[in-house]
Simulated scan of single mutants.
Amino acid sequence: MIRKRMTAYLTVGVACLAMPFGAHADEMDDLVAAAKAEGQLTVIALGHDWCGYAALIQGFKDKYGLTVNELSPTAGSGEELATIKANIGNNGSQAPDVIDVGLVFGPIAQKEGLLQSYKVQTWDEIPATAKDPEGQWYGDYYGVLSFVVNKDVISKSPADWADLLDPAYRKSVSLPADPRTANNSILSVYAAGLAAGAQPGAAAARAGLEFYRQLKDSGNLLPGFGSAASIAKGETPITTRWDSNGITYAENFKGNPPLDTIVPASLTVAGVYAQAISKYAPHPHAAKLWMEYLYSDEGQLGYLKGLCHPIRFDAMRKSGKIADDMLTKLPATGNNLVFPELSHLVEAGEVIAKEWTSTVGAGSK
């Protein structure tokens, strides 16, 4: 598909300066000035223990002197879109400027007319499969779906998806969030279906639903969702989470309780997340500046320090910006890591959202 050069318009006072294809050096000065005039950025669903966002937010504030208003740090992707819709026409503190959502939710938000186009300076280093050609959404990082296990409760960690059906794990297995709206849970169900041998797309979604129905019927699936707190308390001793979550939790817990982060042996999936700017952003220039920051070398390495895989990983590795010693904390994935195609994810997400309650019915608050 031919890439279109998009033009964003930056207003500083009464001047209007054209900014094609992201901001270049002199245009960055204008963008910074316009963002500072707005004075604030409103983000949503950026937990401080998620992919290094505590340091990234602080780095952005330190670098540009803007206030960052943080909404609903534990919100799921569907909730982020709902928040944009609920605040159309509201320029107050409850209207998000930017969203960070599971990849499947980028096209959904675009279809619903919730986004505006903007291409960052490093646009060419974002893989084509992880971005909208017109710049309405674009991948920022990805995680590797893993089992996070509380070793005080579980003496032998599961090695693969089928192991979760073991009677030894009765009342022990949980999803991380509501699978009708949360990307990490949608991909948990989808990965289980792929591991069962189903074809990508709707077939894998339904196979994954069947697997979780078996977990429920066996008594292994818990009705609640696995948060850092519930994992620490032993209330959800086995939960699917991104590898970065498990490693971060283990560091924060300092061995109390001890945790395992296990990459499923047969197959697991990469979960790509995406950034986008709300069409109704009260602070559109601050939003664009935030995007430039996140997709710069500094921002991408910030994700890596937060134990997530930056979307520019391949290009930065090739250019020597990511060295071997930066990867020591990340678990090895071998050859079992699958990057699902976007069309399959959209299809699977629709099936899981529609059929989760009727097929499984557990853990859906």
Rank of each mutant, 00 (worst) to 15 (best):
A182F: 00
D166I: 06
K156F: 07
L175Q: 12
A203M: 03
P340H: 10
I231S: 04
T11G: 15
A323L: 14
S364T: 15
L114R: 05
K85I: 10
L115S: 03
M326V: 04
D160V: 08
I108L: 12
D152K: 07
K4G: 08
K321A: 12
G299V: 10
S157R: 09
V346C: 12
V338K: 10
G193V: 04
E112Y: 11
G226Y: 09
S72L: 15
R206M: 07
P284D: 02
E350F: 12
D160A: 10
L222W: 00
K254C: 03
I154W: 11
K111F: 12
V149D: 00
Q136I: 09
G78F: 05
A37S: 12
S343K: 13
P167W: 14
L114S: 01
L209N: 11
E292P: 00
D124W: 00
P167K: 13
A205P: 07
K151G: 06
L345M: 14
V148P: 01
V98F: 00
A45R: 02
E80H: 08
G22I: 09
T248Q: 13
D260V: 01
A168G: 02
L330K: 02
L31E: 10
L56C: 02
A323F: 05
R5C: 11
D100Y: 12
N252Y: 08
G22L: 08
G193A: 02
P167L: 10
E355V: 14
L330F: 09
S188Q: 03
A195L: 00
T42M: 06
T240I: 12
R213N: 14
P310D: 05
M291S: 14
A348Q: 11
L114I: 01
V148M: 05
P310W: 04
A192E: 01
A54L: 09
D30M: 13
F21T: 13
V68I: 05
T359C: 09
I277Y: 05
A229N: 00
D314M: 12
T122M: 05
D160Q: 04
R241F: 05
Q40L: 11
H24P: 02
S93P: 09
A35E: 03
F211K: 05
K329G: 02
R241C: 10
S266H: 12
I57V: 14
A18C: 02
A229Q: 08
A75F: 13
G349C: 10
A18D: 03
K216A: 15
T328D: 04
P200E: 08
M6T: 15
A353Y: 05
K61H: 02
T239V: 11
Y295A: 05
Y212G: 07
N150T: 00
H283L: 01
S93K: 10
T359V: 15
H283F: 11
Q121G: 13
W290C: 00
E79A: 15
A202G: 08
G320M: 04
A191E: 06
A287H: 11
D62M: 01
T328M: 03
L307S: 11
L222K: 00
A229H: 04
V149I: 10
L304K: 06
D217Y: 11
N91W: 07
N245K: 06
S146H: 09
I44Q: 04
D30L: 15
A192K: 03
V269K: 01
L114Y: 10
S146L: 01
F339N: 15
T122E: 14
A250G: 05
Y273Q: 08
Y280F: 14
F253Y: 06
